[in-house]
């Protein structure tokens, strides 16, 4: 199997404060890999480093066999890395359509491709099509999440990094979002999924990594992780095992 993403010995810091120590993980083509951990464990920080928003103090990030550690975010986007950031971060004063267009910025010279991709996003999220000329800042939280996901899909990335796509959403929408994530993966996009909701993450992903205060403390197939006592205690709740 060929690794699409390979991270080795990553050390990340904000200023002088080290947040992640020695993180190593890999993701093969076609996989969904979950990254779980408590608040402040360093999940978002790790995704930011993968997308190129934060340069590591130490360690390497390889994408498609190429060392991308020194590349800025806009170069990594051209290589096929997309991030749906924490808090959605839609452009509030651009319309839904303009947000999507910018998601396809790398293919701006190819209007027919953009049109096809936008139709696909609208088919995935009909709500966005109804609101296409509305400013993104006026959308509801769930709609903004759809937009952030649709915007990332406009670049047809090889690797889609999702930072807590279910945060703050109604259970019914959460269900839809995870279904969409599986559909995106089935169509060939590899996914790195950060989730606080470990149950959802394990249902969706094939493998997982558990992060605790900036270090990987467990990894393996989701089936194995579910049985790991440390994971059960911290993320699944003991009651689940007793029943």
């Amino acid at each position: 199997m060929s690794a699409l993403l390979e991270i080795a010995g990553l050390e990340l810091a904000y200023g002088q404060v080290a947040v992640c120590r020695n993180i190593s993980l890999r993701l093969d083509r076609g996989e969904i890999v979950a990254l779980i951990g408590a608040n402040g464990a360093g999940k978002s920080t790790t995704l930011r480093a993968i997308a190129g928003l934060l340069s590591p103090r130490r360690g390497t990030i390889a994408f498609g066999g190429r060392d991308v550690t020194a590349l800025p975010s806009y170069e990594r986007s051209k290589l096929g890395i997309a991030l749906v950031p924490e808090g959605r971060r839609v452009f509030p004063f651009l319309t839904v359509r303009e947000n999507l267009e910018l998601g396809g910025f790398n293919s701006r010279k190819d209007p027919s491709t953009l049109k096809r991709r936008m139709e696909r996003v609208f088919a995935m999220f009909p709500r966005l099509s109804e609101r296409s000329s509305q400013n993104a800042g006026t959308l509801s939280g769930g709609e903004q999440q759809m937009l952030a996901l649709g915007r990332a899909m406009m670049s047809e990335p090889q690797l889609l990094c999702l930072d807590e796509p279910s945060l703050g959403l109604a259970p019914i929408i959460v269900h839809d979002i995870f279904q969409t994530i599986r559909a995106i993966n089935a169509a060939g996009t590899s996914i790195l999924l950060v989730e606080q909701n470990a149950r959802h993450a394990f249902e969706t992903a094939q493998r997982g990594y558990v992060l605790q205060t900036g270090s990987v403390i467990a990894s393996g197939s989701c089936a194995t992780l579910k049985r790991d006592p440390r994971v059960q205690e911290a993320y699944l709740g003991r009651t689940a095992t007793r029943r």
């Binding site: 997308a51 986007s77 452009f91």
Partner: peptide
Amino acid sequence: FLGKALRAVSQDRETAGLMGIN
């Protein structure tokens, strides 16, 4: 496209970078 990218950069520079905008 460039004008929209310019507005995107002024609303959220970091996220604009994620779109492939320099």
